[in-house]
């Protein structure tokens, strides 16, 4: 087991004047045994970052260490990692057993130990009866488990996951999320998990890295990221519906954007006056979309109402008051938290 240290990691494609930098100096310290999720919109560089840790992409600048070793110039096989790919990357011509045993055979692990290790992994993942099947004879969920099994049997220092759940249907995804959590509790192997799905990130992460356009916006526990977003990007990316951001809120200084989460706005007798534009019922809660006129334009403010609370009429005017201790302030130009 090992920690992962990223220090000022850069990635660019091409060279010279045409170089295209996609990761702009990411530094992070991932502790031994920790489960860290990298989350961000598509194209933010999260997969590239993971592939640099894996050794599948060259590191253009900075340093990556696994344990105490700098791995910049090491081959993927020398980094003592295992990776679960988005499309699982199972070897289609090999049985489930051979898929899991491939790495061990190359490492010249004795035959009976290979069998023991694969059997154990198959037992954990409930794959025992499928060991002789080919990947094409398995369902999506089973293939996903084989991919995990292939990672487990190697007993690596680090697990890398590249959006491993995105090809599963919603129900299976929720189930597999729990399985991954349990697996991590049992094995305690340092894990780096890349996803674009904030629910996955919030539920799986011990700490999470929020990335945007090649920059690490925030690194913290899910609670921290949710309660104290470091920037307007994090504020709107994490949480659904996103945080309301109001540029020229009453009482706020110029150049400051005020943020307030939909659940921290209460409908009161006086306060900000909004026209109800739309209503959405989600079962346990309702979302009220209020239009707030100011100057010539307007802003849409979302309010979350729990079940049982009175719901305003469409088109009516309501008054809302934010809970003062839940207000967030951001610099309008940089987007950074103040």
């Amino acid at each position: 087991m090992a920690s992962i240290t990223l220090s000022k990691v850069f990635k660019s494609y091409g060279s010279g004047k045409t170089a295209n930098q996609v990761i702009h100096g990411v530094s992070a310290e991932i502790h031994d045994g920790e489960f860290v999720v990298v989350v961000g919109p598509s194209g933010c560089g999260k997969s590239t970052l993971l592939r640099m840790v894996a050794g599948l992409e060259e590191i253009s600048g900075g340093e990556i260490s696994i344990g105490s070793r700098v791995v910049n110039d090491l081959e993927p096989s020398e980094r003592d990692i295992a990776m679960v790919f988005q499309n699982y990357a199972l070897y289609p011509h090999m049985s489930v057993f051979d898929n899991m045993a491939y790495g061990l055979k190359i490492a010249r692990v004795p035959k009976d130990e290979i069998k023991a290790r694969v059997d154990k992994a198959a037992k954990i993942l409930e794959l025992g009866q499928y060991l002789n099947r080919k990947p094409r004879e398995l369902s999506g969920g089973q293939r996903q488990r084989v991919a995990m099994g292939r990672a487990i049997v190697r007993q690596p220092q680090v697990f890398l996951f590249d959006e491993p759940l995105s090809n599963l249907d919603a129900k299976l995804r929720a189930h597999t999320r729990l399985e991954i959590q349990k697996l991590h509790r049992d094995l305690g192997i340092t894990s780096l998990f890349v996803t674009h799905d904030q629910v996955e990130a919030m539920t799986l992460a011990q700490r999470m890295i929020v990335m945007n356009a090649g920059i690490m916006e925030q690194f913290g526990t899910p609670e921290e990221v949710y309660a104290r977003p470091a920037s307007t990007f994090v504020a709107t990316f994490i949480g659904s519906p996103p945080m309301n951001l109001i540029k020229e809120a009453p009482g706020a200084k110029p150049g400051v954007t005020v943020g307030i989460r939909p659940e921290h706005l209460d409908i009161t007798d006086s306060g900000w006056a909004l026209t109800v534009d739309a209503l959405e019922t989600l079962g346990a809660e309702r979302l009220v979309y209020g239009r707030w006129q100011h100057g010539e334009g307007y802003e849409l403010v979302i309010i979350r109402c729990d079940e049982g609370r009175p719901v305003p009429q469409l088109g009516s005017t309501i008054h809302v008051t934010p809970r003062p201790d839940r207000l967030h302030y951001f610099d309008t130009t940089t987007g950074k938290r103040i």
Binding site: L56, P76, N87, Y91, Y102, G103, R150
Partner: peptide, 17 residues
């Protein structure tokens, strides 16, 4: 798929293998 080759590389297989 390129990922198969990458998976094999991570599994420790040399280019020849």
């Amino acid at each position: 798929p390129k990922s198969l080759i990458e998976a094999a590389a991570i599994d420790g297989a040399s280019p020849w293998r």
